Simulated scan of single mutants.
Amino acid sequence: MTSTVVVVAGDGAGDVVAALDGLHNVRAIPRGERQPAEVMELAARSAATYVVHDADPLAEVAAAWTGFFDGTGVIGGLEVAAGRWWPADLEAWLRGHPRVVPDRAGLPSGGVVVA
């Protein structure tokens, strides 16, 4: 893929994306009834300079944060939603990043120095 991908998120995102359709070098993909994976597949196949869509890849995490702060979320819901971001082999992924990783990233307290 050589396109610049822009995600429009929030209320009215689908209308914004639809309004961009027809602009020169822009491929607008309103999600509508499509599954996010289908939107990503269409975006990956596009040859347009800019691909704009409204399939927010972090919508589930945003909803979990909202539920956490509003007190309406299920216990552990935020951890489950945010935990999906972590790679399957977290330790190997961290070894590829030689720096101090703070304990707020879900690692043991005191931070971990990864060499």
Rank of each mutant, 00 (worst) to 15 (best):
Ala44Gln: 15
Leu42Lys: 05
Pro30Leu: 06
Thr66Pro: 02
Glu41Pro: 01
Val61Lys: 04
Thr66Asp: 14
Glu38Trp: 04
Phe68Glu: 12
Glu33Ala: 12
Gly71Cys: 11
Gly67Val: 10
Val61Tyr: 07
Pro36Ala: 05
Pro36Leu: 07
Gly67Trp: 08
Pro57Asn: 04
Thr49Ile: 04
Arg34Ile: 00
Thr49Gln: 11
Phe68Asn: 05
Val51Gln: 01
Asp54Val: 02
Ala62Glu: 12
Ala37Met: 08
Glu38Asn: 03
Ala48Val: 07
Ala43Tyr: 04
Tyr50Trp: 15
Glu41Asn: 12
Ala44Met: 14
Gly67Glu: 06
Val61Gln: 11
Phe69Asp: 05
Ala37Arg: 11
Asp70Pro: 01
Phe69Ser: 14
Glu41His: 10
Ala44Arg: 12
Tyr50Met: 14
Trp65Thr: 04
His53Thr: 07
Phe68Met: 14
Ala48Asn: 09
Pro30His: 05
Ile29Asn: 01
Leu58Ile: 13
Pro30Lys: 02
Ala47Pro: 01
Ala47Ser: 12
Gln35Ile: 06
Thr49Val: 13
Ala47Thr: 13
Val61Thr: 05
Ala55Asp: 07
Arg31Thr: 10
Gly67Asn: 07
Gly32Thr: 06
Ala59Lys: 10
Ala59Met: 07
Arg34Glu: 06
Gly32Val: 07
Asp56Lys: 00
Ala55Met: 09
Ala43Leu: 12
Glu60Leu: 05
Phe69Trp: 14
Glu60Val: 11
Ala62Val: 06
Ala62Leu: 07
Glu60Cys: 04
Glu60Gln: 11
Asp54Thr: 03
Gln35Asp: 15
Glu38His: 08
Thr66Gln: 12
